[in-house]
């Protein structure tokens, strides 16, 4: 038996919005510790990994580990039927888990919607993500990162990210011209969520597809801050932390011939 009741149901709605364009089908791996999902996009360029810890639910019950194979587009359609303030409960019977039950309670508890989502068998590759000491870790406002990606998409399909000392620089070059945005590290004690924090072991310069980065920024509503982790010749990690877990996107770099 699996049961997970999320008081902040709106979070699940936002979470689905942040993965559904990257991944079509995925397994939700449920265990005592929580709900996890790991999936690559069709072209194997990006990987998304998310975790919702069991402590974030009230209550959370999962007798033994099992996987719920879900078409994310279908789940997203059903979640659109939940109000932003609804409490969302997910239920599945592990013996015959061919469907996932969802119930949506409004805050007054006088309207309850109940839905069933058919599950599917998904044979998914699982990758082991190595523990990495990144050369550069940047914490910055998530809205700023979203704006930079959106703005530079006007110029090019790819962006070079250079991190050195106290500056992160995003550069795009395309047929119409070029553009770059430099952010200096700042510290705002009053508003830490508005500051740019750069932790640097050594300088990094890497190129990435803006199309994928734009997709990752669908996670912006989940957190005021985004964490970017870079190392030479390694995938970029873009992370949005939530109270109850995280969503991490990994993007393979573009490398010169």
């Amino acid at each position: 038996m699996f049961e997970a009741r999320l008081i902040q149901g709106g979070l699940l709605k936002k979470l689905l919005e942040s993965v559904k364009e990257l991944v079509t089908d995925a397994n939700f791996d449920c265990s005592e510790s929580g709900i996890a999902l790991q999936a690559m996009d069709n072209s194997h360029v990006a990987l998304v990994s998310l975790l919702l810890r069991s402590e974030g639910f009230d209550p959370y019950r999962c007798d033994r580990g099992f996987s719920l194979g879900v078409n994310l587009n279908s789940l997203n359609k059903i979640l659109k039927c939940a109000g932003n303030d609804d409490i969302i409960t997910l239920r599945a019977d592990d013996n015959s888990a061919d469907s996932l039950s969802l119930s949506f309670e409004n805050p007054n508890n006088d309207r309850i919607g109940e839905y069933e989502l058919k599950l599917m068998d998904i044979d998914q590759e699982h990758l082991s993500i190595p523990e990495t000491d990144y050369d550069a870790t940047i914490i910055m406002p998530s809205a700023e990162f979203q704006r930079i990606c959106r703005d530079l998409t006007v110029v090019s399909e790819s962006v070079t990210i250079d991190v050195s000392k106290d500056t992160i620089k995003f550069t795009a070059e395309g047929e119409l011209g070029s553009g770059n945005i430099k952010l200096k590290s700042t510290s705002s004690i009053d508003k830490p969520e508005e500051s740019v924090n750069i932790e640097l072991g050594q300088d990094v310069s890497l190129q990435f597809s803006l199309k994928y980065l734009m997709n990752f920024t669908k996670g912006t509503p989940l957190s005021e801050q985004v964490i970017l982790c870079l190392s030479e010749k390694m995938p970029l990690l873009v992370e949005y932390k939530m109270d109850i877990g995280y969503i991490r996107y990994y993007l393979a770099p573009k490398i010169g011939d």
Binding site: V45, L127, P130, S209, M234, L251, G256, D257
Partner: peptide, 14 residues
Amino acid sequence: NLTQTSIDNFFGRT
């Protein structure tokens, strides 16, 4: 010229 690498070049299968 740039080549897009694949994520499975970096992360091994389990």
